[in-house]
Amino acid sequence: MNLHDPVDAPAGSATETPVFAEPWQAEAFAMVVALHERKLFTWSEWAQALSSEIKKAETRGEASNYYQCWLAALESLITGMNIAPKSDIDLLTRAWQRAALATPHGQPIRLENDPDRL
């Protein structure tokens, strides 16, 4: 088992790996920081939600994706606090996917581009 990065370079040098692998991870991360700053939850509540999702993923044997757990924990807090039900999140997710497919290459994806938008 190889636990670590190949090189432990001086802190802050250019050889360090990027903190986020994909943009959505950065956005999911930042949303949690922003909601915590608005005091929607304490950091302990957040750590509890996150560790519970990590535990679930590990039980399923798919522990590798940390930010998927992060996102699932954020979603559980949002639905748990009745900010939005899961069904709304599902509907909007599909709307965003349709909007993406309907958006010409090179242009920003907007929710308005969803052809089935009500």
Partner: peptide, 8 residues
């Protein structure tokens, strides 16, 4: 995942 983040 990206679509779900946008939805949230």
């Amino acid at each position: 995942m990206a679509a779900r983040v946008r939805a949230l």
